[in-house]
């Protein structure tokens, strides 16, 4: 009972998405209109950790929290790439993760999108040049949108995803 009275007192915790600068999100590939129409407002996301420091994962977890609540935009996370429309890739791609990342991409049914989250995914970040790193995400699979930041804030990631499906 205490639980429910607390639920009642707190009310809605979800914050509306603050308007952010266009510079935070940079669209590298123009998402074509067909894809936009296809996904509508239902996007299943499969997250792939290709070798990140897990900082980005922490922020991604924040997306499902009541405050950011990605579900209100119809974005939900799924367990299998077979169910996914979008891959959310973090970290520099390590040598060990290069093939699995490729396999995940292959396992995803078309049409599919790839959002690379974090500076590492774009430039390999602080791990650049390491013997263990195979390259940035776009060297392994085609990327639709990069989200910058180390780590990027949940709102940025949300905007990245939304940019990818061309909602905003």
């Amino acid at each position: 009972m205490r639980l429910f009275s607390k639920i009642f007192q707190v009310g809605l915790a979800t914050e509306p998405l603050p308007p952010g600068g266009a510079d935070v999100v940079r669209l590298l590939h123009e998402v074509d209109a067909r894809v936009r129409r296809l996904f509508g407002r239902a996007v299943a996301v499969r997250q792939v950790d290709a070798g990140s420091c897990n900082g980005c994962e922490l922020e991604i977890t924040g997306l499902t929290s009541p405050v950011y609540d990605s579900e209100r935009f119809g974005i939900h996370f799924v367990a299998s790439p077979r169910h996914a429309d979008m891959l959310l890739v973090t970290g520099p791609v390590t040598r060990n993760m290069a093939v699995p990342l490729l396999k995940t991409y292959e396992a995803t049914p078309a049409p599919k999108l790839v959002v690379a989250v974090g500076d590492c995914a774009r430039t390999c970040g602080v791990f650049q040049g390491s013997y263990a790193v195979a390259g940035s995400v776009d060297q392994i699979i085609p990327v639709d949108v990069f989200v910058d930041g180390c780590p990027p804030e949940p709102t940025d990631i949300l905007r990245g995803i939304l940019a990818a499906i061309g909602r905003r």
Binding site: I7, G11, L12, T14, A42, A44, E71, D85
Partner: peptide, 17 residues
């Protein structure tokens, strides 16, 4: 869970997709 959540008709969109 104090979230806004997806509308009740969200599953239709998912099935359609």
């Amino acid at each position: 869970q104090n979230r806004r959540g997806a509308p009740a008709w969200q599953p239709y969109r998912e099935l359609g997709k």
